[in-house]
Amino acid sequence: MEKHRLLLLDELRRKITRLETFRRSDPSRPVPSGIDPLDRLLREDGFARGTLVEWFDASEGAAATTLALLAARGACVDGRALVVLDRRGEFYPVEAVRWGVDPQRLIVLQANGRADVAWASCEVLRSAAVGAMLAWPERIAGRDFRRMQLAVEQGGGLGLLVRPEAVRREPSWAEVRLRVEPLRCADDARRRLRLHLLRCRGIVSEPSVDVEIDDQTCRVYPVAQLADSANPARSA
């Protein structure tokens, strides 16, 4: 009886997933997140095109922006543009270029006012010439959020929203939600993080992976690969 119930639930889950994802413009080419263990966790080996992805910093400065930029870079490798919606005027393009963003394909929008920001977000996400949009919105009205989701579905890019932990409980139209928690790391060129996959279609639990960002080489490694070199494996 219990087995039958689990099978039924599994079947229903698959049907819901099919219904929810059939409208995607290009389901065949997911965008790699740039983090191998995270790609393995995501059901499609990366972020599905035409979706919104939310990144939450567990505490300020937890590197969610860096990881979102990594995904944005992956979404723009085919030559499409990266649009950064920078309301505060704090985005530092020099570092983004160091991380591999093509400055000739980088557009920075300094919009202000809720209506203009919401309108610009939808316009950008709706354009097929845009590979990814990176923004730091705090509150997003439900109607605006839904419009953004429809727009990104139409455009086929990736909407990357880096948001504070305080709004994590609010309703969301993002297909993938991730929480970035900083861990202690004694190395100045590396940042150690724990990534919690809060939402991803087809995944019920909230799995997590530990990774390290190497700021010097601009790469992200799974923590397990960086075994302490001071304790080499014993030889036979």
Partner: peptide, 29 residues
């Protein structure tokens, strides 16, 4: 690529028309 350039041009024009020239920016290092 030509189609993307055309689309991007249209997007930039639309954003500029609503947000103003100084809000839609390119980057030079």
């Amino acid at each position: 690529p030509h189609e993307d350039v055309r689309r991007l041009g249209r997007l930039i024009s639309r954003l500029t028309a609503r947000l103003g020239r100084t809000a839609v920016l390119g980057v030079r290092l």
